[in-house]
Lab assay of single mutants.
Amino acid sequence: SAEDNLGPLPENWEMAYTENGEVYFIDHNTKTTSWLDPRCLNKQQK
Results as ranks from 00 to 15, higher is better:
12 N>D: 08
19 E>Y: 06
7 G>L: 09
8 P>I: 07
21 G>T: 04
4 D>G: 12
6 L>Q: 10
27 D>Q: 04
43 K>D: 15
43 K>A: 11
36 L>W: 09
23 V>N: 13
34 S>C: 05
9 L>S: 01
42 N>W: 14
13 W>R: 02
11 E>P: 13
20 N>P: 07
17 Y>L: 13
10 P>H: 01
37 D>P: 04
25 F>R: 01
14 E>P: 00
43 K>Q: 12
12 N>E: 07
11 E>Y: 12
43 K>Y: 11
32 T>K: 02
14 E>V: 07
21 G>Y: 06
6 L>K: 14
13 W>A: 04
20 N>Y: 08
31 K>F: 06
30 T>N: 07
28 H>G: 05
9 L>K: 02
42 N>M: 11
41 L>Q: 14
22 E>S: 09
30 T>E: 06
35 W>N: 03
24 Y>Q: 03
38 P>S: 00
40 C>T: 14
8 P>F: 04
40 C>I: 15
8 P>C: 06
32 T>D: 04
16 A>Q: 04
9 L>A: 02
30 T>Q: 08
23 V>A: 13
13 W>E: 00
23 V>L: 15
9 L>Y: 04
22 E>M: 05
4 D>W: 06
21 G>Q: 14
6 L>G: 08
9 L>M: 11
39 R>H: 01
5 N>W: 06
36 L>Q: 07
31 K>C: 05
4 D>R: 10
11 E>L: 10
36 L>T: 10
39 R>L: 01
46 K>P: 00
11 E>V: 11
8 P>S: 10
28 H>A: 06
11 E>N: 11
24 Y>I: 03
32 T>Y: 03
6 L>H: 07
40 C>P: 15
28 H>T: 06
12 N>I: 00
18 T>F: 04
18 T>G: 06
41 L>M: 15
4 D>Q: 11
10 P>Y: 02
44 Q>F: 08
31 K>R: 13
44 Q>V: 08
28 H>D: 03
43 K>L: 13
30 T>A: 08
17 Y>Q: 12
29 N>P: 01
34 S>L: 00
33 T>Q: 02
12 N>V: 02
41 L>Y: 13
9 L>T: 03
9 L>I: 09
5 N>G: 09
27 D>I: 00
27 D>M: 00
12 N>K: 10
1 S>Y: 07
23 V>E: 14
8 P>V: 10
45 Q>V: 12
18 T>N: 09
2 A>Q: 14
